[in-house]
């Protein structure tokens, strides 16, 4: 049985998908997940869920956003130093999202 694993780095952060483990039951899956994903990286919590429980819709079945060139709606396109720390943070989050788009 395949279990998908989600790792949370610190309290209040999102659990992010980090891979899967093969295990006969939930208890074993949690144990394997700890060994595989919670040993070398700071971890606050781990989730496991049976793979068949995951719902999915992919680009064949849906029209997702974020692929058209809309430079004007990105902070990175404005040649101005960020006015405040939180503006700079937002801009760097946007830069990361842009990089991910470029990778496609």
């Amino acid at each position: 049985m395949i279990w998908e694993v989600f790792r949370q780095e610190g309290a209040g952060k999102y659990h992010t998908h980090c891979g899967n483990v093969h295990a006969p039951d939930r208890e074993m899956a949690l144990m394997f997940a700890q060994i595989q994903h919670g040993r070398r990286k700071p971890t606050h919590s781990i989730w496991v869920t049976p793979q068949q429980e995951i719902g999915e819709v992919n680009e064949d079945g849906a029209t997702f956003g974020g692929t058209t060139d809309k430079g004007y709606r990105w902070a990175t396109q404005y040649n101005i130093t960020a006015a405040a720390e939180e503006v700079a943070d937002s801009e760097s989050e946007q830069a990361d999202a842009e990089k991910e788009r470029g990778r496609r």
């Binding site: 902070a75 404005y78 040649n79 101005i80 960020a82 937002s90 946007q94």
Partner: peptide, 17 residues
Amino acid sequence: VVFEEGFHIKHGESILK
């Protein structure tokens, strides 16, 4: 919200400038 606001503020500042 905060993810998107960075654009709003830089756009606003760009008009001001």
